[in-house]
């Protein structure tokens, strides 16, 4: 039984969670907003440090067990959010149109903001793999099938995937908390935005928004959960049939303008 063989991972995860919760949430004012440090962010950072190969705390087989376990664990967040949505299903369906349209923001946001920057920084074809989606597992599969992972597009998608694993949740959690504290956007809109389609990033963003607006916590969890579900389910098809061709199209149009010297390279 791999779970018994890898008991150390589970014990450390328990200790990490208890210790980080005990430290509690810290708020650091930054300009007009606030940086919100939630226990889950410490857990992520401390977990990273403990699992550094240099420290030799875990065998390779143990960290790969943790990776397999993590894929399952994110499902308990999905269940929790589903149970929050259930009693208010009608309310969520009432916002159904808004929920569907904001998905365009999730799918195209990576391209709109990411692609011009990637091209201007001289990333070449890697820009396409890097910015056509948020580059989690299902998106890697799309690129792997179309271009192969050793292609420039494959290198782009893998690079952003690793960045996402290392600091995606921390970054999204911090910007979500910061933006929420600015009170520019309504908490429901922020909650929908938080459903980015990656379990840990969604958790960090939703947690931060719910901490800033505790009185609307139930609605925030509900809209974030519904949005995350849509992003995950529709995302695969949207990325394959719309995002990737569009990213390629914009790459062709933008490259000569943003990176003229790279022409033909």
């Amino acid at each position: 039984m791999s779970i018994i063989k890898n008991w150390k991972i589970h014990l450390i995860a328990l200790l990490l969670a208890v210790i980080c919760e005990w430290i509690g949430t810290k708020k650091v004012p930054l300009g007009p907003g606030v940086l919100l440090f939630l226990p889950m962010l410490y857990a992520m950072v401390l977990g990273t440090i403990i699992s550094l190969p240099k420290l030799k705390a875990f065998k390779e087989s143990e960290t790969s067990h943790a990776t397999a376990v993590l894929g399952l664990m994110t499902m308990i967040l999905v269940t929790k959010l589903g149970v929050v949505i259930g009693p208010a299903l009608i309310k969520v369906l009432n916002a159904g149109f808004a929920l569907c349209v904001q998905e365009l923001g999730h799918f195209m946001g990576t391209v709109v903001i990411g692609l011009p920057i990637a091209i201007a920084l001289g990333l070449g074809r890697e820009s396409v793999g890097a910015t056509f989606s948020i580059d989690r597992e299902p998106n890697i599969a799309i690129i792997a099938e179309k271009y192969g992972l050793s292609s420039p597009e494959g290198r782009g998608v893998m690079a952003i995937y690793i960045c996402g694993t290392v600091f995606g949740a921390i970054w999204v959690g911090l910007i979500a908390g910061f933006l929420a504290a600015l009170h520019i956007f309504h908490p429901y809109a922020l909650a929908m935005g938080a459903g980015v389609g990656s379990g840990s990033m969604m958790a960090a963003a939703t947690g931060a928004i719910a901490t800033v607006f505790p009185e609307q916590k139930a609605e925030i969890l509900m809209y974030a959960g519904a949005s995350n579900l849509l992003t995950t389910i529709v995302g695969i098809y949207f990325c394959l049939f719309v995002s990737l061709p569009l990213t390629n199209y914009f790459y062709k149009k933008l490259s000569p303008i943003l990176a003229p010297k790279k022409k033909g390279a």
Partner: peptide
């Protein structure tokens, strides 16, 4: 969940 996520990052 993020405790487990952290433990996968080191590698």
């Amino acid at each position: 969940v993020l405790s487990y996520a952290g433990l996968t990052v080191g590698k």
